[in-house]
Simulated scan of single mutants.
Amino acid sequence: MDLTPLRQRLLTALAGDPEGAPPWVLRLSEGDDAGYFPENGAAWTVHAGTATLIAGIRALLVQALHPGALAGVHDFSRYREDPLGRLAGTVRWVICVTYGSTEQADAETARVGRFHQQVKGTYQSTEGRAVAYSAADAELVEWVHLAFADAFLTSHRTYGGPIPGGPDAYVAEWATAGRLMRVKEPPRTADELARALESYRVRGILQGGPRVDDVVRFLRRPPVGGGMALGYRLFFAAAVATIPKELRRLLGVRRSVLPVVTLTRAVLPIVTRVLESGGPRAHDRAHERIRRVRSNASG
């Protein structure tokens, strides 16, 4: 069976390139240091797994519960006009920061920061008053980091394999990415992460509503066709299955009656084989850079 067409569709969605080798991926083999994260460590392992496909959906759903974050997406994101482009842009930042040299990671973070400087406006609170927001606000930056870290950690724990050093190692490592994005005190353990997330709900900051419903409807059935549409519906259900009940209620979603966790665990290894059926992946290029750096240091 020729897996090339499916692989190309997946790589176009994830990297914006049918071969998975846009210029920013090729640059992962360049640079003069090992980067911000230990080779084959917790962040490398979590972000290399195909459970990230589910984590991305989960992160977008949970992030939408903060009205400021939702307003930024509604007012500035091109997710409706170009959902795959929006996804590829997020993937680019994650991959460059995780596997790139510090120079590449810093440049990519600066690129995202320049865009965030433009993201500002107002939204209506539940009381009907106008509230100013900016993507650079400390609370919004923290919320996005928390929702991201929780989504990727929870998805990997549910659908992936072991994490070197365990969940705390991932949270501690990914705190570096939080600091790069100017999060003042990112959590460093899984318990700290869970408490920080829950504090937003307890303080009444998170809320549902028509805009959230609109995002959920779009994320439930985005404009993808063919076999990818069937797979995406499974991954959406898999993401919902990992979201706590209180947040599912705000999102207006329910867990599927189907055994989606079992089905997803069966499907993800197939997706892994599809993606690995072609050329080098991002972490392979990072390994290449690190071997060169070590060789130069020892020679």
Rank of each mutant, 00 (worst) to 15 (best):
D2L: 12
A13D: 06
G16N: 01
D17T: 08
A21Y: 04
L28Q: 04
L28K: 02
A48C: 11
A51H: 08
G68H: 08
G68C: 09
H74F: 11
R78K: 14
Y79S: 06
Y79D: 03
D82A: 13
P83Q: 05
G89P: 11
G89V: 07
T90F: 04
T90N: 04
R92N: 06
Y99C: 02
S101I: 05
S101V: 01
T102N: 03
A107L: 10
V112Q: 04
H116N: 15
T126K: 12
G128E: 07
V131N: 01
A138N: 05
L140R: 04
F152E: 00
I163G: 13
G165N: 10
V171S: 05
A175G: 13
G178Y: 01
R179E: 15
L180D: 03
V183L: 08
D191E: 15
P210L: 09
V212G: 07
V215Q: 04
V224I: 15
G226K: 09
G226S: 10
G227L: 13
L234T: 14
L234M: 11
F235H: 11
F235M: 13
R249F: 04
G252A: 01
P259T: 08
L263F: 14
V267P: 06
P280W: 06
A286V: 02
R291S: 07
R292W: 08
A297C: 12
